[in-house]
Each structure stands twice: as C-alpha cells, then as structure tokens.
Simulated assay, not measured.
Amino acid sequence: MFQLTSKKRTLALDSPQVMGILNTTPDSFSDGGQYHQFDGACQQAREMIAAGASIIDIGGESTRPGAQAVSVEQELARVIPLVEYIAANFDVWISLDTSKPEVMQAGIDAGAHMINDVRALQEPGALAMAAKLDVPVCLMHMQGQPRTMQMAPEYDDVIVDIKQFLQDRVDACLAAGIKKQQLILDPGFGFGKTLAHNYELLGRLNEFSWLGLPVLAGLSRKSMFGQLLARDVTDRLPASLAGALISIQQGAQIVRVHDVQQTMDVVRVWQATETYIR
C-alpha cells in the first residue's frame, strides 16, 4: 500500500484520492479568472473540501498551451494567502502546483504538504529545494514548454519514451537525496501529446506502475475530450468523469479534477462494486 508522508501526517493511497484543482490565475484553460480573487478561491476550496477532496492543488501560473510565464513575486502573491487560509481552517492536504523553488519553500512554510511540478524538478534549484523540504513530489512528463508543447509533439514510442523520462527524473531525485517513497508519477495528459498519444496513455496507464510508485492522472476538461467529442471546455463533464473512472480502473491512486463532487460519486460507485468485479 502506498502512502504519502508530510509534516508527521500521512495520506493512505489504498483507495483512490480526489485532488481538487484550484487555479488562482486569470488565464487557466478551464477556469481562468474564476477564482483569481481571494474570496472566490476560498469559497471554491470550501466547496471542494465539503464534497470530499482529500487534496487541494493550488496553482498560481497557468500551464495551458501557449501560456506565458509569471514572476516569482506574482506567483507568491496568488498562492500563499490561499495556502495559509486552507491550512488554518481545514484538515486537508495542500498541494503546490509550481516549478519555482522559491514558491516551493514559501508554500511549504505556509502550510502546504506536497509539490506538484509539471517540469519534474528540472528548473534551476528545484531538485535541491525539494530534497531540503522533504515532502512528497509529483513528477510530471511534459514535452517542451507550455508556450510550444502542442506545436508538433513527436515520440518514437509514447509509452516507452515517457517511462524513460520518468525513470530518469526518479534517478535524479534519488541522487539529490529525495526518498523514493516521496515520489508520485504523472504521465502528463495534454502536455506535449497529440490526441492519439493521450488516448494511448489512458488505455495503457497501468503500465506506469512498473516503478512501484503511485500514479496521478489529470485529464479533467482537457482538449483530448474536446477534440474527440467536439465539446467546449464548459461541456466536458461526462467525458472527464469517464476519464477519471478509466484512470482509476487502470490503477491511478490520485485523480486531479475540477468537478470534485461528481468525481467523488464516480469513486464511490466504483468502490461499491469493485470487490465483485471479476
């Protein structure tokens, strides 16, 4: 059984955990600007926690295709007050969606429990900072950078190539002094992948358990559903729920979603029946 440990707290991963997405950015692909103001972000956090989210993932820099970078100061101003608010008022795990070591340090000091890095600790100073903080880290695969990642993604073999990248990042983490039991893997749906790549990843997600680490799947409202179904980002809930269920059936320990209540319904129905599935 996997479990996360941070600040003398543990989170068991013997059943699927729902991570609620809370973007405090004006330009995120799905909810850009909706929770940019502090009060709105706090209300959304309360609703996701009440619905059953065990982790709240706070991000202050959009990583949608074509997104522009923000400064350390901007990102800190967006995320730290919210981390402090949630840490002071709720018994829930807080994840920092960041690649900047300065934000990692300030966020963990403010009450966050883990780091979710789309760049897999490749930014200068990130590896050393994660080792110093000694908290769980999710390593995600991304081909290229947000500004360019969807221009022409190519792989010799998408599964083999992503496995190799993640193995290399795990090795780098271990060499830097990060404990293996503190690592989580994310194949990075939509981050430098074509439509076909994304569905191959979903159909073969169970292959990413090869390293003996928990897997996080983040498909919520992504363009892989919009392209397949010709649905606008506001009309992708059924597809997102299907993606979450398939991810769980393929062995994902954590699903990262916008729609917590509806995803929790899916998880509970699956839990009620999975014992009887042959």
Rank of each mutant, 00 (worst) to 15 (best):
I178Y: 08
N206G: 08
N206Q: 13
G192W: 05
L139V: 09
G203H: 15
G203R: 13
I178E: 10
A196G: 11
K180Q: 13
V137W: 00
N206S: 15
L166C: 03
F189I: 13
K179N: 07
Y155N: 04
G188R: 05
Q167H: 08
F165C: 01
N198W: 04
G190F: 08
L202C: 11
K179G: 10
T148D: 15
D186C: 13
H141N: 12
K180N: 02
K193C: 04
K193N: 03
G203K: 10
A172E: 11
L183C: 13
Q143C: 00
C138Q: 04
K179H: 14
L174T: 06
H141Y: 13
Y199E: 02
F208W: 04
D157T: 01
D186W: 02
F165Y: 13
S209F: 00
Q182E: 11
H141V: 04
L139Q: 05
I178W: 07
F165N: 01
E154Y: 04
I162V: 14
L211I: 01
F189M: 12
K193T: 13
T148W: 06
M140F: 02
N198D: 09
V160P: 00
W210H: 09
P187H: 03
Q164V: 06
L139C: 07
I159A: 03
H141C: 01
F165R: 01
L174P: 06
C173A: 11
N206P: 00
I184P: 09
F189T: 08
E207A: 10
I178K: 02
T194M: 08
V170L: 04
F191Y: 14
C173Y: 03
T194H: 07
L205A: 06
A152M: 09
Q150M: 15
I159G: 00
R147N: 14
R204W: 04
L205M: 10
W210L: 04
T148M: 02
M149Q: 05
T194L: 04
G192K: 06
L183F: 09
L183M: 15
D168V: 01
M140L: 12
Q181N: 15
L201C: 05
Q181K: 12
P146N: 11
S209C: 05
G190R: 01
V158I: 13
D156G: 00
K193H: 06
M142Y: 07
H141L: 08
E200T: 15
A175E: 14
F165T: 05
Q182R: 15
Q150T: 09
Q145N: 04
L205K: 03
P153K: 07
